[in-house]
């Protein structure tokens, strides 16, 4: 197991290395002078020069690249060009909010999506199925900010149950409470995606030979559904949920804007506006790392459902 994890991490090293290089290059080919962008037009030539010196912008690009790598190797993402604070610290401060949001949404998506999708499959070609399919299709077509706005209008304004804007300093209980609306807005979309996958996966499984074998044994229907079919159907669902996690992490940017919620998304938008390139660079690396981690977790989750998977 530990060996498997290590191997998986090692095998993603080339990709991560590519990510680092790409991010470095993108940030360096930015049209315009970062010093000018950050210090403003009326900064003195001296100040500009000092800034470039401090940020290492005067060195040749390959040297910048090497010191970029050296810095990463020492476990630092560098300092913000704007505030001068360490990027890593700034990321760590908001990361929990984004993680809460996406994990909550994932939770909602699985809790509602899997049963609904299977219900739809069990009632294939009845009005239940048609309704579920139409609803999930509408669900995946909903832009995530729209669902957020609709939820705000319904549950924060028409029926004021939940706060619109969360306060980052809250206690655990109230931060959970603050999480409900933003989490639901992402979670409903996730539900729609999971429903579609669960339905098709269950239908595929239910026509497998081993389900016929189970019936031939006189196995009661509910046991066929939960023991024989569901466990097999979960395997492809795990794959797809892993893929959609990337979508969820990306879309959390929008949710954080609409709900004015702290998180990686708010931070990246802020850094974009301030042209804080070192912060952007660090954030991109964190995002890529999260995706790699999600893939690893997905692979490990298979083992829970599928005995054919071995970690060696």
């Amino acid at each position: 197991m530990a060996g498997f994890i290590l191997k998986r991490i090692l095998s993603s090293v080339p990709t991560l290395f590519g990510v680092l290089t790409l991010v470095f290059l993108l940030v360096r080919v930015v049209p315009g002078d970062p010093a000018l962008a950050i210090l403003g037009d009326n900064a003195s030539e001296q100040a500009l020069q000092a800034f470039r010196e401090q940020m290492g912008l005067n060195e040749p690009i390959w040297q910048q690249y090497l010191s970029f790598l050296a810095q990463l190797a020492s476990g630092s993402l560098g300092n913000s060009m704007v505030t001068g604070d360490p990027v890593f610290g700034a990321v760590l401060k908001v990361l929990p909010h984004t993680l809460q949001l996406t994990v909550f949404a994932l939770f909602i998506g699985v809790i509602f999506g899997v049963p609904l999708g299977i219900w739809s499959a069990l009632r294939r070609d009845t009005w239940v199925d048609y309704t579920c399919r139409l609803v999930s299709l509408v669900g995946i077509s909903f832009p995530s900010f729209l669902i957020a706005i609709v939820l705000i209008l319904l549950f924060a304004i028409e029926i004021p149950l939940f706060p619109v804007i969360s306060n980052p300093e809250d206690t655990v209980a109230s931060s959970l409470y603050n999480l409900v609306l933003p989490g639901m807005s992402l979670g409903l979309i996730m539900t729609a995606f999971v429903m579609r996958t669960a339905r098709s996966s269950y239908l595929n499984v239910s026509s497998e030979d081993y389900i016929r074998t189970a019936k031939s044994k006189g196995t009661p229907r509910h046991i066929i559904i939960f023991r024989h079919a569901l466990r097999n159907a979960l395997i492809p669902i795990v794959t797809v949920v892993g893929l959609y996690m990337g979508l969820l992490i990306g879309n959390s940017v929008l949710t954080e804007i609409v709900f004015n919620r702290p998180g990686l998304g708010k931070l990246i938008v802020l850094s974009l506006n301030l042209r804080d390139y070192s912060m952007l660079q660090g954030l991109m690396i964190v995002y890529a790392f999260m995706v790699v981690l999600v893939n690893l977790i997905t692979d490990l989750t298979y083992g829970l459902f599928d005995p054919r998977v071995t970690y060696s």
């Binding site: 990510v19 929008l254 974009l272 991109m284 890529a288």
Partner: peptide, 23 residues
């Protein structure tokens, strides 16, 4: 591998960074 690198970012984030850089 190049494609993997592009897929290593959450969908929206890739687009976001490219536009931010290119204008």
């Amino acid at each position: 591998r190049l494609m993997d690198i592009l897929l290593a970012f959450p969908t929206l984030i890739t687009g976001l960074l490219i536009v931010a850089v290119l204008g």
